[in-house]
Amino acid sequence: MKCEEIRVLIPDYLSETLDQQVKSRIDEHTLSCADCRREIDALALVWSKMEGLSEEEPGPAIRTRFYTMLEAYKHGVENAPQRPSMFERLNERLRVWWPRQPVFQFCVTAIFLIVGLTIGLRVNTVSRSTGELERLNKEMTEMRQLVTLSLLNQPIASDRLRGVFMSRDIPEPDDRYLAALVTTLNSDPNVSVRLAAVDALQRFSDSSDVRTDLVASLPRQTSPLVQISLIDTLVRLREKRAVDAFKIIAENPRSIEPVKKRAKMGLDTIY
């Protein structure tokens, strides 16, 4: 056996999956070939160290996310409006000029059967790619959105935070998802989660509903950090409807100084 042949067999040699015969030939070879011997020793050492790389358990949220996704999928499939299949659509058209006489019926059926089989085979292999894929992609986005929604309702703050961060993977969220983000912004007990929600919603500020929600959220916020972040966001958006909220904060004796200052600066900028 040549050295190159030996080398490729080293992984099998180490995992002890080689025939006894082949194994002895390798052992024999290494008696006289120092290079191969050294290489086997080196790989054996790393091989054995790899035993130490243990597997770790994923967090508990992964299960929730999976089962939510599965439920959502089942639900979605059961409730999806039945799209008429190509055969049904074809059938619809045919009904109009379907021949009345049974003999003709038979002939036409035979012709359509042959034509149909030929077309059917082609359609199945070709047209699946474009329209179908687009639809699949859209459904994937919807599913991702559902999974993210389930994260927003988790009891552990880090999971909810992840749910908010995942909004990045949803370029065009639907109203239900945006509403969940707004609820998070308004009532999540954790400041980091609320802060992240401000950032997330800001990305969807093209929607005037989202801007309205951001304005309405400001008076509800008690944490100075969230207040400042919201003020900055609304100033950046040049949102005139925020003026009243800014005034209230600027004049509220319970607002802390940096927040008041920010609100006053905001008023100057927007006006």
């Binding site: 967090g59 992964i62 599965l70 999928y73 699949l136 994937m140 599913m143 991702r144 999974v147």
Partner: peptide, 19 residues
């Protein structure tokens, strides 16, 4: 990354369903 890995696992099973 643990986070990325969890995201990817859920995505794989989603794709398994879709395909």
């Amino acid at each position: 990354s643990r986070q990325t890995s969890e995201d990817l696992v859920v995505d794989v099973f989603l794709r398994i369903l879709k395909y």
